[in-house]
Amino acid sequence: MTSLTGTALFILFPLLDAVKRSFFTAMGGRFTGLRAYAEVFANKAFQLAAANTARFTLVCIPLLFVVSLGLALAVFAAADKAEIVKTGLLIPMAIPAASMIAVWRLLFADSGIINGITGAATDWFAAPYAFPVLVGTYLWKNLGYNLLLWLAGLYGIPAARFEAAMIDGANGFQRLLFITLPSLRPQIFTIAALSLVNSFKVFREAYLLGGNYPDDNIYLLQHLWSHWFASLDIDLLCAAAAVLAIALFAAIGVLRVTLREAT
């Protein structure tokens, strides 16, 4: 109960408060209805940041999904020999963003190692590379975590099911398609939700690499909110926050319903 009260106090209440604030002027608290929302949607910076954030989420999460699932299947097939892989892939998550920035600079700077190898003078923190670099950072960080989640599902499949299929003459691909993948369905919701949580955390890397005004391609909602916070555009900030919260609730709801109907 303490926990629920605390969570309510520090997260739920601020959320509702933010929604309330989005209907009033920042100073003086005059009721303005949906004006802040109209202003937010018309705002060029918001359109850019929202598009980037959406693009990032829509690229990263499916990518991470597929790559980590493939890896998990490989680790599962390699059985015990792959223990080291699990540890190795989990390590990036333990390295704080502040530490990684030094390495990222060394690798991707104008006179960095990668440019040193390729001999080109690519600016990795500007278009068109800034976005893939950020996506790569996200994958690098979260691969191990998702791998473990998939593996948990794989190990949970009764071996008898595979054996029965093999006796029935199913080949490896058929076993994957008709036994492995359907059995993993319960994992999907959790993995999607956790991937989404972590996708918002790339702001740290984006911020540490690009500062307050990074390349247009990686200008995320969080950058915009920081600016509005600094300039005290509280009503805009709250309206945009409410929009995101609604989008997230909707996404989770849709995911829940589709997965439930599928099972």
Binding site: T7, F10, I11, L12, F13, P14, L15, D17, A18, R21, A193, L196, V197, F200, F203, L221, Q222, W225, S226, F229, I234, L237, C238, A241, L244, A245, L248, F249, I252
Partner: peptide, 16 residues
């Protein structure tokens, strides 16, 4: 809990 877990910090930043 799951939904609140998803919210990025900035959503509740001002009120917080």
């Amino acid at each position: 809990y799951i939904t609140l877990m998803l919210l990025p910090f900035q959503v509740t930043m001002v009120s917080g």
